[in-house]
Design a protein around this nucleic acid. Structure first.
Lengths: 207, 207
DNA sequence: TTCAACATACCGACTGGTTAGTCTGCCGGT
DNA sequence: ACCGGCAGACTAACCAGTCGGTATGTTGAA
């Protein structure tokens, strides 16, 4: 009871208004605004107002405006890497593993459409070091995915007519592109889009 | 001789330095800088300095910074629309027409990589009216392309498993994505990339 | 041929507004 | 007494667009 009171009191302090702690609220507000108006067109003032705090709070938790961007990237990147690893490590035929991974990245991209839209649109706004770091993580992801394609090509279940790198870029092009055309509430549910896109990939890879 | 002198004098006036007229120099400088640093990160001052003129010149030829962006878009958009129309109107089987169009857009995109990169990255920075206009032109393009896919699906040469809209977005995703990974001087020539990507599309559409 | 009237192409200082980030200090809990 | 968690005024820099001015070219009439 005592610790409970403490927790509630602390919560009240760090969550004035709703039930979310301040850093999370800032991140959420920034994500929405960045996706809506773009990174450079969103002022720090607008972010803190949307989060119901002031600049003091923002610069208490984040080092810079860039930091917000980096955090947003980091979350999705880590999530997608984890999920890709899970699919790639599964005990199943290559075509099933690739299919699962290809469809899953579409679903998680749509489920975090704001984050991923910002990602591709403003990646180059990061400071050089952070940009480098993000690119490195990105490449790791790409390579893991490519390994799946290559494995299938080696074992003959996929056509080897197209270099694996290009195949991966082809698929991620469509993922990247989702933010441009996909609108929640459209005629297709995320999973349906994912299935279709995975189908296209697998059909393109038929020997 | 007299008229020649006059022409040269005029040229010298409108092309101080190299052989390009001022508006074209401005457009070229803006394109390079926008692609390099992004629209919002490029100041008008930097553009005019890169073009070797001053703000007076820029605002003499263009109404605003937005106008530059709009012009850059317009050029590529018109070029690609023309070429798509040519391929679509050709007298050949659908699969050949689609293949030609799909490969061609990849080549022209790579050949104008700066313009197209800016296009997809900064489209949403345009003023509402200009944005609407660009979107409308873009949709016309998309629909023409989709018609080709639908024709093939109706006549049975393409699989109808995937909605034509999605197929088009799948392909244009990869086109859109080119600016992210393609680097001139890489191991693949533009035409090779185009052939591979068109292959992937056509293979995905095999019944 | 000449000259005035006008037009085109550009220059560059200036303005009004915006912005990221800083800094001082309060406040409530431990 | 102290410290994390914030408030909010402040600063230094920057930037798109304007505007008055200059130089060069063109045209039409005397």
């Amino acid at each position: 009871m005592r610790t409970e009171e403490k927790r509630v009191a602390t919560m009240a302090r760090t969550t004035n208004g709703d039930g979310q702690p301040v850093p999370r609220r800032l991140l959420a507000a920034a994500t929405r605004l960045f996706a809506e108006r773009g990174f450079d067109r969103t002022s720090v003032q607008e972010i803190v107002e949307a989060a119901g705090v002031t600049k003091g709070a923002l610069y208490h938790y984040f080092g810079s405006k860039d930091d917000l961007l980096h955090e947003i990237y980091g979350r999705v990147l880590r999530l997608q890497q984890e999920r890709l690893d899970a699919f790639a490590d599964a005990d199943a035929p290559v075509e099933q593993r690739l299919r699962g991974a290809a469809a899953d990245v579409v679903v998680t991209t749509i489920e975090n459409l704001d984050d991923t839209t910002i990602f591709f649109r403003s990646m180059h706004h990061l400071s050089p070091e952070k940009y480098k770091q993000v690119r490195a993580e990105r490449r790791r992801y790409h390579e893991r995915f490519r390994a799946l394609v290559e494995e299938g090509q080696r074992t003959g279940v996929f056509s080897a007519d197209t270099p694996a790198d290009l195949v991966v870029d082809y698929h991620f092009g469509s993922v990247h592109h989702l933010g441009t055309w996909y609108r929640p509430g459209g005629s297709l549910a995320p999973q349906q889009v994912a299935d279709h896109l995975a189908d296209l990939l697998l059909r393109a890879l038929r020997p």
